[in-house]
Design a protein around this nucleic acid. Structure first.
Length: 431
RNA sequence: UCCCGCGUAGCUCAGCUGGUAGAGCAGACGGCUGUUAACCGUCGGGUCGCAGGUUCGAGUCCUGCCGCGGGAGCCA
């Protein structure tokens, strides 16, 4: 009985007969010599079948192979520069687990609607596998970054009462006769946890029922949010630039193969080291007006504005201290200019747009209550949040980073729908 | 919600000023001892998104609807 090996370990078995278990990517037959390429999740390996050297039953089994047939292939491992991956199996036996029906996805271009309808199969394609590997590495980098710095992960609830950034865009569901909403953010909960543990973060899915139809929006996306007691807005931006630089460096270090397969120009990622440029909102407005934008002071920046700002820099850029009207109720008023709040957006290069929104939080009870009333938010739902300003209030700051937008930027892909295994978008709930 | 664009074979597309519905890939069969999205030959494959209209005649022109894509707004 041959030893079972994962494809990535074949280099340790040169000269041995091993069994590989996986799925047939493609076959090529030449009459008396034939090739089968098998994928097992760790890599791909080519098997060569010589009609003279295998029993007739094995040759017949080869001829039954179709794309995505599940098989175990047994053969001797050889170094072979002509084979993808550098190793090749001289096939001695093929065991068919199931002959796959005609597979819808071919190694060629497909339309996005077709691919999304077949997302459960599309995941098997090489670029999609590479993207999911990069996502996995980014998720690990996030956990490592915070663990190394003494942050405690505090998971926020997904089912919530009416509480979030604003009243709009909430997915509603029934909770034993009471209305419940899918979380738009974990921030308010980890503000509570910051008073318990100091430095905390949460990481999980968040939901926005916005009818957005752009390459930067999903209705379900993953967000990692940090909250730090005693940090002001400047401390907050320093943490953000270290965090983003750490993630990018990790991807460059450990996902070289994937980024190459995705044809990412990694030289653009090498620049991503602190400090990131910082420009105030007011300065940004002046820059944009000089470039021809119609933005006026007081308006929020649109996506084209963000791209115009980013194109002047070779790394992410902070825009800070936005007008109060353009931002959420919980942001702290700027003592130096009360028209603005102490917040920042981090805009990624190359047109990827906002990947972080952060702020120092309003820690004064009366001002926070006034803002909740100004925004017309359901005051009763925010009682516990206001409590945090009654029992030992404290300066604190935090931010949220959109995982899919970050992975799209790192992988250089145009649309975030490929950055999550099963995207949820306007008009797309299946598969 | 608004503004653009697109719906033709299983998939990707071509189809000109209206006149017999096409190719490549995939599939089936045959050939080939080193292929890399192999190649060569043969074959099957269509409610041209749906409904109406104009016309002797509509894949093609017009109207409405549906679906999808891109963008705006909103945001991460």
């Amino acid at each position: 009985m041959a030893v079972v090996s994962e494809v990535r370990d074949l280099g340790r078995h040169v000269g041995d007969v091993v069994t590989v278990r996986g799925w047939v990517e493609t076959t090529r037959s030449h009459g008396k010599v034939a090739f089968v390429v098998v994928r097992d999740g760790t890599g791909i390996v080519q098997g060569v079948v010589l009609q003279k050297q295998v029993p007739p039953s094995v040759w017949e089994d080869f001829e039954r192979l179709t794309q995505e047939t599940s098989v175990t292939v047994t053969g001797a491992v050889r170094e072979e520069p002509r084979a993808p991956g550098g190793y090749e199996l001289t096939v001695e036996n093929i065991e068919i687990v199931q002959v796959a029906e005609e597979y819808p996805i071919q190694p060629k271009e497909h339309g996005i609607e077709f691919l999304l309808d077949h997302r459960h199969l599309w995941l098997r394609s090489s670029q999609q596998r590479a993207i999911l590997r990069v996502r996995n590495e980014v998720e690990k980098a996030i956990a490592d970054f915070y663990y190394e710095r003494g942050f405690i992960r505090v998971d926020a609830p997904i089912l919530t009462g009416a509480i979030g950034e604003g009243a709009s865009g909430l997915f509603e569901t029934d909770y034993f006769g009471e209305k419940a909403y899918l979380a738009q953010t974990g921030q308010l909960y980890i503000e509570a946890a910051a008073a318990a543990l100091g430095k905390v973060y949460c990481f999980g899915p968040t939901f926005r029922a916005e009818k957005s139809k752009t390459r930067r929006h999903l209705t379900e996306f993953w967000m990692v949010e940090a909250e730090v007691a005693w940090y002001d807005s400047d401390d907050n931006m320093r943490l953000q630039e270290e965090f983003v630089s750490y993630i990018v460096a990790r991807a460059l270090d450990r996902c070289g193969e994937e980024l190459e397969l995705l044809e990412r120009d990694t030289s653009k990622l090498e620049n991503v080291v602190p400090p990131f440029p910082r420009i105030s909102y007011s300065e940004a407005v002046e820059r944009l007006q000089a470039k021809g934008s119609t933005i006026q002071w007081g308006m929020d920046m649109g996506a084209p504005d963000e791209t115009m700002i980013a194109e002047d820099f070779d790394r992410p850029v902070f825009v800070y201290d936005y007008p109060k009207e353009a931002k959420a109720f919980y942001m702290k008023e700027n003592p130096a200019d009360p028209r603005t709040v102490r917040c920042d957006d981090l805009i990624a290069p190359e047109g990827y747009g906002e990947i972080i929104g952060g702020s120092q939080r309003e820690d004064d009870y009366d001002r926070l209550l006034a803002r909740i009333r100004e925004e017309g938010l359901p005051e009763a739902s925010y009682g516990w949040y206001l409590d945090l300003r009654k029992y030992g209030t404290f300066p604190h700051s935090g931010f949220g980073l959109g995982l899919e937008r970050t992975v799209a930027w790192i992988t250089g892909r145009p649309h975030i729908r490929e950055m999550i295994p099963f995207p949820r978008m306007l008009n797309r709930l299946h598969p």
